[in-house]
């Protein structure tokens, strides 16, 4: 009985190695014929066009008016000296 169990063990281990070796072969074939392809990079977002000098003065005027309204002051009471673009 003990010898039978030894034989069963040897046979079963052989079968397991055989089956898993076949799976290794399958994986190798699959990977060979279907290699990983890098997905195409998403199209870059076009950068917002830098405002021209005329646009910038209109922007400053608009911000100036909104700020004056928000602060409850007259537009002449303060001035915007600098806008840092980000």
């Amino acid at each position: 009985m003990v010898m039978a169990s030894v034989w069963v063990s040897i046979l079963a281990m052989s079968v397991i190695f055989l089956v898993l070796s076949v799976l290794i072969g399958v994986i190798k074939v699959l990977v060979h014929f279907m290699p990983y392809v890098e997905p195409p990079a998403p199209p870059a977002k076009p950068k917002a066009a830098a405002p021209s000098a005329g646009d910038e003065s209109e922007l400053i005027a608009a911000v100036h008016a909104v700020l004056a309204h928000h602060l409850g002051k007259s537009p002449q009471d303060f001035s915007i000296t600098k806008i840092n673009p980000r």
């Binding site: 079963a12 281990m13 190695f17 070796s21 290794i24 190798k28």
Partner: peptide, 18 residues
């Protein structure tokens, strides 16, 4: 895929216990 062999080798525990 060669790590499959490690999964096979660990089954030695099954058979020594048998």
């Amino acid at each position: 895929p060669y790590t499959l062999l490690l999964g096979a080798a660990a089954q030695i525990g099954v058979y020594t216990t048998l």
